[in-house]
Computed example of a mutant assay.
Amino acid sequence: MRLARRHPLLVAVPLCALAVLAARPADGDGSHAPGHGTASGVSAEVARLYEEAATATERYEAGLREADEQRARAHELERRLDRERRETAVLREELGRIASSQYRDGGGLPLTAHMLLADDPEELMRGQRVVQKAATALDEAIGRSERAEARLTRDEARAAAAWRKLDQRNGELAALKQGIEAKLESARWQLQGQADASVAAGACRGAVRLDQPETRFTTRWVAPVETYELSASYGSGGARWANRHTGQDFAVPIGTPVRAVGTGTVVKVSCGGAFGVEIVVRHAGGYYTQYAHLAAVAVDQGDRVSPGQWIGQSGTSGNSTGPHLHFEVRVTPEMGSAVNPVSWLARHGVSL
């Protein structure tokens, strides 16, 4: 399996959800009954869970960043204190040296006696002033160090409290996120179950119109999904296909929004058969794109679509071994006329 370039998900991932359809079924020929389903039941639940999961993830990651910043501030304070301690140690050593020198020179005598006995009283006074200045400087340095110690103690206590609070909050957010994702996974499979029922009946439900995100594509063509891994490629062999694989598979979770790769018109929406729930779009120049193994559709036959518009949601309906989007490019609406979709998209400026 070839791994594709990862693209960041749109904030609107929540929309992946709306996919359970609540419109009347069509005749049992695998065709689609035009009309609008209502976004209710598990569909609305999936949408809500996607939104909550995105929000929880954002808050969780913000908490981790805040914790990292707090640790960086504490480490900087610790480095500053170490510098103060080293400076103080140097001054202590210097004072000790001066004191030892005084002792060897009779420092135990009063200053007056030193002056009377000294060969050069002025030199003695200069030395005494040096000692006094050194002692004063040392006292000031010790004071600074003690104040720095006190500040650091306060800062460390605040940082420790902040870390505990951040860790607790992040733990709660992680648990909430995990709970939402578990519910979302359950809702996805409920959604897939409804798609499988439609395929078994050979009749699609009406389209559920997805709330489109605010996107302004600067290109005329886009990839059919936003975040993906490429799996089975065009022309590959295997027991799953009668001859060769006729499209490019995108491994994505159930409910992932599927996008129209370019401007076109929906010419087919159907359920049943090897492709399960599928959509075919006609584009200018005589080419058609197919989106298969879907869990739900968001367009009706005859709809006009634009680049990046959400037209359905991925699934694993039909002859599928796991959640993915099967994407084809054809020169007719029907199978048997496929061309390599990767090179076709590359010619349109889309690199997978």
Rank of each mutant, 00 (worst) to 15 (best):
P110H: 03
L124C: 01
V131K: 05
D119V: 10
G106R: 02
K133T: 11
E123G: 02
Y103L: 15
T136D: 10
Y103V: 14
S101L: 12
Q132A: 12
L116M: 15
Q128G: 00
P121N: 06
R104K: 13
V130C: 00
Q128I: 00
D119S: 14
G107N: 03
G96D: 09
D120N: 07
M125K: 04
M115A: 15
P110C: 02
S100H: 14
V90P: 01
Y103G: 01
D119W: 03
Q132D: 03
A134D: 00
Y103N: 05
A99Q: 03
E94Q: 12
R97E: 08
L124T: 06
L95G: 02
R92M: 07
A118R: 00
G127N: 05
V131W: 07
L116F: 14
E94F: 06
G96L: 10
E123R: 10
A134T: 13
Q132Y: 08
M125G: 06
L109H: 14
S101F: 04
L111N: 03
R104Y: 12
A89G: 03
L95A: 05
V90R: 15
L117C: 10
M125Y: 09
V131A: 11
E123K: 04
M115P: 01
R104E: 13
A135S: 06
A89P: 03
A134W: 01
D119I: 05
Y103M: 14
H114C: 06
P110S: 09
G108T: 14
V90F: 10
P110Y: 02
D119T: 13
D105M: 09
A113L: 13
L91F: 09
D119A: 15
G106V: 02
P121S: 10
L109W: 10
V90Y: 09
E122C: 05
A118K: 02
A89I: 05
I98K: 08
V90S: 08
S100G: 13
L111Y: 05
L117Y: 09
A89Y: 04
Y103S: 12
E93N: 06
R126N: 04
E94C: 00
L109E: 15
E123W: 02
G108W: 14
T136C: 05
L116W: 12
A118P: 00
G106P: 04
